[in-house]
Nucleic acid binder design. Structure first.
Lengths: 168, 168
DNA sequence: GCCTGGTTGTTATATTGTAACATCCAACTT
DNA sequence: AAGTTGGATGTTACAATATAACAACCAGGC
């Protein structure tokens, strides 16, 4: 984490991703303990696999990984684990990609905000509370009761804007 | 259109939906003429079918409707027409529902903002420019180049909040 | 007439997600 | 320890969503 904390939101940089994965797992452990939930070996492994990827991963990619582990696995195995993790806000699902990504503020009840690079496929999660409030306010105007909000922004990350100029 | 224009965003009210459909088709015709695009009978019919529904419709629902017309149709027929309409911003796709809904500001390059009622399934489209700007600003902080933004808010529309109190 | 590019038809298949039921296992009860 | 119970996982089968690849068609220009 030697960058400015802004463009560095994109996990393409050289920061220690392995440490992030460990932190996410530890955080998940304690969160489940607090809530009296069972972070079983399967669920823990799925969470790890999601976090290990630098990009959002599809359910069937996780399934392949589980099978590589030597574990018996079928689609429901994966979907159930992912559903649990999403439920507990340890991972997010990105509907426009049919894929999952580790949540970097696990357990907190926040609006999911994602910048999705169409070129490299990497995703940055934002936590813009002003944006949260703007959505709440807008919904309140129509007397809609918000339960969950999701912002998906597609475009080009800083790195890929540069690459495009190079005519890649 | 006799309500206050706020909760009335939800198409559940008694306003003249048929007129909305006609207006959308007319607007699409002129927009395509301007752009030199062909709003073929198939595309026009698909647009009409999407608009006729009070809720977002799936591709396979449109497919059924086309077949009821007596038309020969297979999945690619529908997906191609829908892709065209999405491309030209005449309809929106809601990834979290795998469904499509008519755009009520056709052709304008705006951020898609939707309030999705989990109870009745109806969807209201917002056009909150402050929200647009907030998203742009947030993305700009990370030097991300926004090409397209989507806000999906899940919750309960005013009508269904009331209904829930009735214990249904 | 005939070429051309875009549109649609058609068949087959890929990808994503669930239903339904069997089995297992940890924790609690007796 | 044996039994009971509820949640978690295994397993089979299938549903729902989406696309690839190629053939046929058709409008407009030459």
């Amino acid at each position: 984490m030697t960058d400015d904390g802004k463009s560095g939101l994109f996990p393409a940089g050289g920061h220690d991703h392995h440490a992030c994965v460990e932190a996410a797992l530890a955080s998940a452990e304690s969160l489940c303990r607090e809530r009296g939930l069972r972070l079983t070996p399967l669920r823990r492994r799925v969470l790890e696999l999601v976090w290990r990827s630098h990009c959002p991963v599809g359910a069937y990619a996780v399934l392949e990984d589980l099978r590589r582990d030597g574990r018996s696995a079928a689609p429901p195995t994966v979907y159930r684990a992912l559903d649990f993790l999403v439920q507990e806000r340890l991972v997010h699902r990105l509907p426009s990609l049919n894929a999952y990504i580790g949540c970097n503020e696990p357990g907190a009840p926040h609006c999911g905000q994602f910048l999705i690079c169409r070129h490299c496929g990497r995703v940055a999660e934002l936590h813009d509370h002003a944006l949260d409030r703007r959505i709440s306010a807008s919904a309140a105007d129509t007397r809609f009761r918000v339960e969950q909000a999701l912002v998906e922004v597609r475009g080009l990350c800083p790195r890929c804007q540069a690459a495009e100029g190079d005519g890649e």
